[in-house]
């Protein structure tokens, strides 16, 4: 392929881009662990004081709890709906397959902020006003369904249907077949779909910005408000938690389905 000299150049360029990709993330973690009020050179030493400040901030802990509750609800809903939909589409899609695939992934393709606006106005039109938790759950589920759908579909397409036929042939009812054969074998895909849904909801900003109200503030909105007025590293702690979660998720997904199944555009 490439000779040594050529490889060195490519590797150097690639290393720089990776550094660019990871820089802001590493910086957030450093800021959270930094003793001073903001990052400076040379650093002022390590400390957990900002973690303590975060834990003592009522507004941060309350919105963290709210975010976790919201993400858990949206994850359960979108995982169930998305998995069922991908089962149907892969198996029985027929002529509607393409249309429905577009519909199911459309929330990813349109601007989240406009979906938020459309939902906000729609809820008002229905006379629901700001619906608080319910409205946020709807909005987040909408955004999470595509991820679950795409990931479980990737696994289902590879699934050998003759296994299900074998089970039926041996006397298993459709339900027993699903529980004893299908589910154990697509479990990895469903779990990674759920994990992606959880992270997506936990980090979702656009929908939340428009649909959250007083007392219903997910963490990203809390951070957004905070960052408008202050840069102090309490926000970095929230960021570090989110980063830790992302790392766990990536490693889990790699184990469960292999990240390469996330390639877009074929391959």
């Amino acid at each position: 392929m490439l000779r040594r000299g050529e490889r060195v150049w490519l590797n150097a360029a690639v290393a720089l881009v990776y550094a660019f990709l990871l820089a802001p993330i590493v910086i957030v973690v450093l800021a959270a662990l930094n003793a001073g009020a903001y990052l400076r050179f040379p650093p002022e030493g390590l400390s957990l004081r900002w973690f303590v400040a975060f834990a003592q901030s009522r507004s941060f802990t309350r919105s963290l709890a709210f975010s976790l509750k919201l993400a858990a609800t949206a994850t359960v809903l979108s995982t169930v709906l998305g998995t069922m939909a991908s089962l149907w589409l892969v198996r029985f899609g027929g002529r509607l397959r393409t249309t429905l695939r577009i519909l199911l992934t459309a929330p990813l393709a349109v601007p989240g902020i406009l979906t938020g606006i459309a939902l906000l106005i729609f809820f008002y039109a229905l006379g629901w006003g700001k619906t608080g938790f319910g409205g946020l759950v709807i909005g987040h589920t909408l955004i999470c369904i595509p991820y679950v759908f795409l990931i479980t579909s990737a696994v289902l397409v590879r699934f050998d249907q003759s296994l299900e036929e074998a089970a039926r042939n041996l006397g298993a009812s459709p339900f027993a077949t699903f529980r004893r054969v299908t589910l154990p074998l697509i479990k990895g895909g469903v779990i990674s779909g759920a994990i992606f849904a959880f992270v997506t909801s936990y980090d979702e900003f656009n929908i939340s910005l428009l649909l959250s109200g007083v007392g219903n503030t997910p963490l990203p909105i809390q951070l957004f408000d905070y960052l408008r007025f202050s840069f102090d590293p309490t926000a970095a702690v929230a960021g570090t938690i989110s980063i830790a979660m992302a790392v766990v998720v990536v490693l889990l997904t790699q184990r469960l389905v292999g990240l390469e199944s996330l390639y877009m555009g074929g391959g």
Partner: peptide, 8 residues
């Protein structure tokens, strides 16, 4: 299929 008793 499950009520046919055909081994396949």
């Amino acid at each position: 299929p499950e009520r046919r008793d055909c081994g396949m």
